[in-house]
Computed example of a mutant assay.
Amino acid sequence: MGYSSQHALLTPLKAWFKWLVRERHCLHNPASELELPKVPQGLPRVVLSVEEVERVLTTPNIEAPGGLRDRAMLELFYGTGIRRMEMANLSLYDLNPSRKTLLVREGKGRKDRLLPVGDRALHWAERYRREVRPELISGKDNGHLFLTDQGDPWPINYLTALVRKYLRQAGLNKNGACHLFRHAMATHMLDNGADIRYIQTMLGHAKISTTQIYTQVSIEKLREVHKATHPAKWQVREDERVALLEALESEQSEEE
């Protein structure tokens, strides 16, 4: 069992014993000296490029009601970086087109946060809300923004399967689903110069250290600094560059 799983299992156990002592059901807290394992902050294994994200976003068939709805959800995943549970819990009025904001109610840690929504994501979400959602309502309207074909709120495992389906259709055989758009949003914003504190707010991280992992994934700024300051830089003629790439490709083919 990994450190993350151990941490997830032991945390509620410590809280339970603490509650038992506070409510005087126990005289002593046997978990008071229990040290939680430190969860390693590993880099995201897969980060989609801007081109790959665009390929996935344009995969749904927007001529079909379900495809238009799916496009709206994918755009919001990438545009706001929300988690799949937060997407599933969005209510009809959490999206404010006049203010161009999305209210995430009781996200991780039961905290609300207000996020900006870009024009493109807002366009597709509004098209879905006007053109498709009324047709999906069956019986009493439960107020959820996104509904399945049966008119129900989205279970989170269904969201995972949906996003994974579009990744495969876009020709991306990569592990992951909804969280890939969250990683991509954070990395691409950092590549374009966003301050890490704003990324923290967008993602809803309680600690800046959780967000700082994306600074290790964002390579563009590091590449610029390396190119500008490394003393071993030198110019390559175009014919030499092409010859080098051809040699590398030939070498890779031989290895395969």
Rank of each mutant, 00 (worst) to 15 (best):
R105G: 01
S4Y: 11
V225K: 09
T211V: 10
E254M: 07
K207D: 15
G42R: 15
T210M: 11
V104Y: 03
K18Y: 07
D149E: 10
T148H: 04
E246I: 14
D149Q: 06
L34W: 05
L136Y: 06
C26D: 05
E54Q: 13
V21R: 11
A170C: 08
A88G: 12
P97Y: 04
V53E: 00
W154E: 08
Y198I: 14
S5Y: 12
Q252S: 11
L147S: 07
F17D: 00
L162P: 05
V53G: 01
L48D: 00
E75V: 13
D152R: 09
V21Y: 08
V242H: 15
I62M: 06
G139P: 04
K207M: 03
K108F: 02
K111L: 03
E224D: 15
L74A: 02
L90A: 12
T201E: 15
E33Q: 10
A170K: 01
R168V: 12
G139S: 07
A232T: 03
F146R: 09
R129A: 13
H205V: 05
H7Q: 05
A170D: 01
W19Y: 14
T59V: 12
A228R: 11
V53F: 08
K18Q: 10
E254V: 12
R84I: 10
M185E: 00
L159W: 06
E254L: 14
D119I: 04
G204C: 11
G139T: 02
L162Q: 06
H230A: 01
L36I: 08
L115F: 09
L190N: 08
D94E: 02
A228F: 13
K108H: 01
H28I: 09
Q252G: 03
R120F: 00
A31S: 13
M85S: 09
Q169R: 13
T11I: 09
W234C: 05
K233E: 14
P155N: 13
V21S: 03
D239M: 07
E251K: 14
V225E: 04
L68G: 13
M73A: 13
K221L: 06
A125R: 01
G204E: 11
N96R: 02
V47S: 03
P231W: 02
T58W: 00
L180G: 00
E135I: 00
V163K: 05
R120P: 00
P65R: 02
G193H: 11
L180N: 01
H205P: 09
N192S: 12
K174M: 07
C178V: 02
N61M: 04
E126D: 03
E238P: 07
R105T: 03
N89R: 14
E224F: 04
V46E: 01
T187S: 02
